[in-house]
Design a protein around this nucleic acid. Sequence first.
DNA 1: CATAACCTTTGACTGTAGTCAAAGGATTGT
DNA 2: ACAATCCTTTGACTACAGTCAAAGGTTATG
Lengths: 298, 298
Amino acid sequence: MDPVSTEQVAEFRRFNRYFTRRIGALDDHYLGQDRPLGEARLLFEIGEGVSLRELRGRLGLDAGYLSRMTKTLQAQGLVRVSVHPGDSRLRVVELTRAGRVELAEQNRRADALAAGLLEGLSGPQRDRLTEAIGTAQRLLRLAGITVTRVDGAAPDARACLDAYAADIDARFPEGFDPSDLVRPEEVSGDAGAFLVAYEEGRPVGCGALRRLEPGIGELRHVWVHPDARRLGLARRLLAALETEATTRGLTTLRLDTHASLTEARAMYRACGYTEIPPYSEHVYGDHWFEKRLHPPGN
Amino acid sequence: MDPVSTEQVAEFRRFNRYFTRRIGALDDHYLGQDRPLGEARLLFEIGEGVSLRELRGRLGLDAGYLSRMTKTLQAQGLVRVSVHPGDSRLRVVELTRAGRVELAEQNRRADALAAGLLEGLSGPQRDRLTEAIGTAQRLLRLAGITVTRVDGAAPDARACLDAYAADIDARFPEGFDPSDLVRPEEVSGDAGAFLVAYEEGRPVGCGALRRLEPGIGELRHVWVHPDARRLGLARRLLAALETEATTRGLTTLRLDTHASLTEARAMYRACGYTEIPPYSEHVYGDHWFEKRLHPPGN
DNA sequence: CATAACCTTTGACTGTAGTCAAAGGATTGT
DNA sequence: ACAATCCTTTGACTACAGTCAAAGGTTATG
């Protein structure tokens, strides 16, 4: 990776300082108003019935701390705590009517804060701001996603493939037969690779590489979770898969895709893949692509 | 002002949440490391010799709280406290060598954090991110600036005019004679108006409107503090001055400017002003502009 | 020159955030 | 059926953040 320019680091830190001081602080202060911040955040995360376990994980809180905060919210009549139907060790907490009112008020205040801020701008300026923060958020998310190789049989790998299969099944008129998925041994060891993209610990994308014949590899199941689309993650996965292929001495990569996946086809073209005649008899493909890889020396 | 779209408010809040949770929290946590956050922030603000009074204002701290924090920093040998030379009520605090080392370490860590984040992006993506956060910051700053009318004799007005005069004096080869500034009575009452732009309580720009002859007004001293340039503030001032003119029934605005102020001339043109022959004998102008105003009904 | 205003220090608090360990009920694996 | 594991509760703390009021020295103001 190329080194990060110090000017960009400085710019980023400037923004960070400005934003947290000006917006973050304001937000924290006004959001809770007459309620401790921890409680306000908790209220916000509860939504419609969550287990304490889930909340602990999401907010990164100590079990005891969370238990106490929940109790005070309960004492104020804002939440209701009950035993989880399926597992009596778990407690499920949900908002009462009063809790929903409180949450709505909290949202109203935060909305008013944001609206008040945007009010100082003209229409086009607001559009530019919205555009800029959208871009910034997408890039920051992408920067926080890591792509790593995992075993083809690992739970995260199977979870991704299941999600992929369900996704395709819903999108193809003819459905999708899960037996067409790669088998773990096809993407293990020297035979191939299975890559998973993680965002904050959760798998949000995957891609498989397997050997077709000497010097030629095939990409399969390049998939990105719906929540993580439009970030440029597919390209990242593609690049990582190509690196895997190069280190294995493969010189050509092939893949097939479906006519209905228009964005995917456009992306493959943009990434240097060219359409070729069918090279295989996959059931679900009707467009075939190929790319020549450059040796690692370059 | 047009109402703010709820979609834009939602987008802004989404970004706000994401950013404070992901970046702000990280920053706070790692910045101090083995030091309370308050102390770390204090250390950061001290720089090279500041009075406690100044710090109190900048960080919004309680006098007692600040006094105590300063004392613990002093006990750790990070700062030196002395009496202000001009006013013995004030204390001046400055970093010791050890304090500067500590601050450098703090900066190094924050830089590393930012760099680590940017490392997940390719060069062009980093450029896009830098561009986006720059745009966002400029627009957020602009949104936080308010333009209000003040009396032409008010301290803030005079401060702006002094800064304007010094600015022009340094930029014009022939210098600038402060007696050419508008007199308070020219911009008071119905005669004219003096507008000051405030960012977080500090004046960062100004503009004057005075009556030239019936129906015709003149804009003078439109000025933006160097720290607040390139935000679009001059246009805001211009628009506000035009509103003032319209409510006074003026139908034409004129102004003169100097050949060396190229950006200013470009802005006037972009804002609908057209160049006209000289209408006055101002010493410092050599380009004259005019704009017809539309009645408020439109 | 007295008095008001100002800046800092000190003492005495309060509330929030957060940690750690022990204990008890519930579930899972063997 | 027994042990190990899991989830929550409770008690006992610690540290940080922040407020309020009294007091003492210093400077401006009439």
